[in-house]
Design a protein around this nucleic acid. Structure first.
Lengths: 343, 343
DNA sequence: CTGTTAGCGCGTTCAG
DNA sequence: CTGAACGCGCTAACAG
C-alpha cells in the first residue's frame, strides 16, 4: 500500500487514465488544453499525473502530432574558431531564451564537416524540429539546400548577396552602413589617407564591410590600399601591417574588417615604432570583449549579437504561428560606432 | 512516367517497399543491417530508397526502437558569461566531432533558468537522447537529479567534491595539481610571499584550485592573503588588487584562480605603479586565448578543453556500448604549466 | 462532456 | 528468407 509508487517502468498515458478512472482519450484532451473536460475529471487527472510522476513521451507525441516543440539552431562553421566567437555564443544564448519563453526547446547542432552536414540533413528530413535557425558564417550552400523538402520555417543569420535558387528570410547587421560610418568618422577628422584590411573571402560580411568602406571613400578609394586577409585572426592583422609597411609613413589610418585584425595591426604598428592613434588611427568591427581589454582600447563598430539571436527567434516564432513571411525578407539590424582610444 | 518522382509528400518505408516489390518488413530488416535479406531484394531496396529519396523518420524509429542515436550536451550555466568561455565552446566542438564519428548526433541544450531546467527535465524523462554529457560550471544540483529516472548513461564534466545521493562518472582536470605546480614554480624562484585570488564559491574548480595553492604553500599559507572573488571576470581581479593594496609592497607574487582575474590584477597593479613580473609576479589558470594577447603575456596553467570534450564523449560512448562504468569513476586530465612573461 | 478507435512510421516477433 | 500482424505512446476524429 505504498503511497508514492516508485517509477519502476515507464508510466504512460494509460496508467494515468486508469488511476484517474477515465479513458485515456480524456487524459489526452486534458493534456492538450482541450475545453471539453469536466472540472471533476480534470482534478482527478491532475492528481493522477502528480502521483504517477507522468511525463508525456516526446517521440510518441511528435509522431502523432507532427510537431516537436523544438527548434534547431544550426551553426555552420568554416573553422571551429568561429564557434569560439563570443558573438555566436551570445546569439545562441539569447535565441535559447527567447524560444524557451515561447515554449520551444532549442537544440544546437554543429555543422563542420561533410559528415555532420549529412547527419543533420537526415534529421531535418524527418522533421526533427518545427523550425530552424541557420547561423552561418560561411558561403557554403550545402546546408541551406537541405530545407527544401522539409516544409518548415527557416531563418538565416546572414543576408546572402548572391541570388541562390532557394532563399529564406534573414536577419543581418547593417555591415556596410557600419563600416561606412566609421570610415566617415575618420574622414571627418581629416584622416583621409586610409588603408583597409578586408576579412576572408568566404564570408559575406567581409565583402559588405569592404563595400561600406568603398562607399565612404568614394573616388579616393584605391584598391592597392586594401589587404585581403585569409581569416579573422590577429595574425592576419599583423601580416597586413607588414604588407603595408612601405606606405605606412603616409597613412592616416587603417580601417579593419574586425577587432581581431585591428589588434594585430596595432601590435605590428607598434613594433614598427608607430603610435596609435597619434601617428596612425586604427578601427575595428564587432566590439568584441577584447576591444576593451587592449591598450589602447579599440574604437570600433558595435553590433548587438544578443539582439541578433532575439530578432531571428522572434521572426521564426511568427512563422511558426502561421504568419507567412516573404522568403526575400531581410531585417537589417543597426550598428553603432563606439569611440574609444584607437581612433 | 517521370523517372525521379518529386518528393511531394512524406515518403515512408511502405513506399519504398512498394517500389522494391517487397514487404516493408523486409525493408526494415535491410535498414537495420539484418542478415536475412537476399542480395537481390537488397539491391532492389537500395535502388528504391535512392529513387524515392527516402529518409527514415526519427520519431517513429525511436518510438519503436527505444533509442534515438543522439546524445545531449547539456550546458548548465550560472551566468551566460560561462557560455561565452572559449573552453566551453572547445569542449562542445570536440564532443560533437567525437560523437559524430561514432554515429551519434549531438544536440546542445542550455540550462540557464528554472524554466529551461524544467523543459530539459521533460525531454530527458521521455528518453529524448541515448546519453547525456552534463557540462556544468555550477554547484547547482537541480539538473543532476533529473537523470535518476532515465536509465541512460551520463557523464559529468566536473568531479563534485561533495558526496551527493546520485553521482555519475566524471571527467575533470587536475585542478589542484595544476595550481600546486605553478605555485611551486614561484616558490622555487624564491618568490615565497604570495597572495591568492580565489574564484567564485559556486564553482567546484574554485575550491580545488585554492586547495592546490594551500598544498604548495604548506605552513606558509595565510588566509588573510586570500581574496574571494564573486565571479571569474576581469573586474574581480581589479578589485582583488585594490583589496591587496596595503600589503602589495611586500608581496612577491599573486596566484590567480583564472586568466581573467589575473589580467584584472595586472591592470590594477600597473595603475598602482608596480611592474609585472619584476615587482610582483602574477599567474593565471586556463590558458585562454587572451593569455597571449596581453602584455606581458600570461604565465598560466594550461588545460586542454578539446581533450576534455573528447574524453567525456569517449567515456559516454563506451557506456552506450554497454560497458558498465562505476558511477564513482573520475578521470583526471593533466594540466601543464605554460611559462610566459608574467611570472 | 467522454469513451472508442484509427492512424503516425517503424521495429519486431512469429508463422510460413 | 519473407510477409503479416502487433505494439511503441499519443493525438484526433467520431460516435455517443
Amino acid at each position: 500500500m505504498s503511497r508514492t509508487a516508485i517509477a519502476t517502468k515507464k508510466v504512460t498515458i494509460r496508467d494515468v487514465a486508469r488511476l484517474a478512472e477515465v479513458s485515456y482519450g480524456t487524459v489526452s484532451r486534458y493534456l492538450n488544453g482541450n475545453e471539453h473536460v469536466s472540472t471533476d475529471a480534470a482534478r482527478r487527472i491532475a492528481k493522477a499525473i502528480e502521483e504517477s510522476h507522468y511525463t508525456p513521451n516526446k517521440a510518441a507525441r511528435s509522431l502523432a502530432q507532427q510537431r516537436t516543440s523544438t527548434v534547431a539552431f544550426i551553426v555552420q562553421v568554416e573553422s571551429i574558431a568561429t564557434l569560439l566567437q563570443a558573438s555566436t555564443a551570445a546569439a545562441m544564448a539569447e535565441a535559447n531564451q527567447t524560444l524557451g519563453d515561447a515554449g520551444y526547446q532549442m537544440v544546437t547542432l554543429i555543422a563542420n564537416s561533410e559528415d555532420s552536414t549529412q547527419r543533420i540533413a537526415q534529421l531535418v528530413q524527418s522533421d526533427f524540429a518545427d523550425g530552424y535557425l541557420l547561423f552561418s558564417l560561411s558561403e557554403d550552400d550545402s546546408l541551406i539546400n537541405i530545407f527544401r523538402t522539409a516544409h518548415r520555417p527557416v531563418v538565416l543569420s546572414e543576408a546572402s548577396d548572391r541570388s541562390t535558387a532557394v532563399s529564406y528570410p534573414a536577419v543581418d547587421f547593417a555591415n556596410a552602413d557600419g563600416q561606412c560610418s566609421i570610415t566617415r568618422y575618420l574622414l571627418d577628422q581629416g584622416k583621409i589617407r586610409l588603408a583597409y584590411v578586408c576579412g576572408p573571402g568566404y564570408s559575406p560580411s567581409s565583402s559588405k564591410r569592404l563595400h561600406g568602406f568603398k562607399q565612404a571613400m568614394g573616388a579616393y578609394f584605391d584598391d592597392s590600399h586594401v589587404y585581403y586577409a585569409d581569416d579573422w585572426e590577429i595574425a592576419s592583422g599583423e601580416m597586413a601591417a607588414v604588407e603595408f609597411q612601405p606606405m605606412l609613413h603616409d597613412l592616416d589610418g587603417i580601417v579593419c574588417a574586425n577587432d581581431n585584425i585591428a589588434i594585430g595591426v596595432i601590435n605590428q604598428l607598434r613594433r614598427f615604432g608607430y603610435r596609435v592613434p597619434e601617428d596612425i588611427a586604427v578601427t575595428g568591427f564587432d566590439d568584441s570583449p577584447i576591444a576593451t581589454m587592449m591598450d589602447p582600447k579599440l574604437t570600433t563598430v558595435r553590433q548587438d549579437s544578443w539582439l541578433h539571436g532575439r530578432v531571428m527567434s522572434q521572426l521564426l516564432l511568427r512563422m511558426l504561428h502561421g504568419e507567412v513571411v516573404d522568403h526575400q525578407t531581410v531585417k537589417l539590424l543597426p550598428t553603432e560606432i563606439v569611440t574609444r582610444q584607437s581612433a
